[in-house]
Design a protein around this nucleic acid. Structure first.
Length: 114
DNA sequence: ACAATGACTCGCT
DNA sequence: GAGCGAGCCATTG
């Protein structure tokens, strides 16, 4: 638990919680929004740590292809997909359909932040 | 302190 | 157009 990293992690959690219902975003988008476009991996790592936190809809965060790459880290195997489908998101073979439609860009959806 | 891994992304072949 | 490899940053062994 690093305090310095907590800032970065906290930011990820903030954005993750801000993801509207029935919307998803990519690690790169969040990373870029945080000013660490090259640190998309760290966003994923933050999501991994999100298990230690609460109310972090990590299932709404996928890679830029819309693939549920992190579903392996969830409890079951299709839990992540189930959650997304419960929000009205169409998921097919671990891949989000209409990804561009359900994609949530913090730069566009969050006019004033930072 | 060094080396390896990871829920990613971009570029080249 | 699809596949493979390298780059980046932080955490862990």
């Amino acid at each position: 638990m690093k305090k310095s990293s907590e800032n970065f992690f906290d930011k990820v959690y903030e954005v993750a919680k801000l993801i509207p219902f029935g919307r998803v975003t990519s690690y790169g988008a969040i990373a870029k929004y945080l000013g660490a476009a090259r640190s998309a991996r760290m966003v994923g790592w933050a999501m991994n740590a999100s298990h230690n936190n609460d109310e972090i809809p990590a299932h709404r965060v996928v890679n830029r292809k819309g693939l549920l790459t992190g579903k392996h880290h969830f409890d079951g195997t299709n839990l992540m997909q189930q959650l997304l489908e419960s929000e009205g998101i169409v998921v097919r073979d671990h891949q989000i359909q209409h990804f561009e439609t359900v994609f949530w860009d913090p730069f566009i959806e969050l006019p004033n932040n930072l």
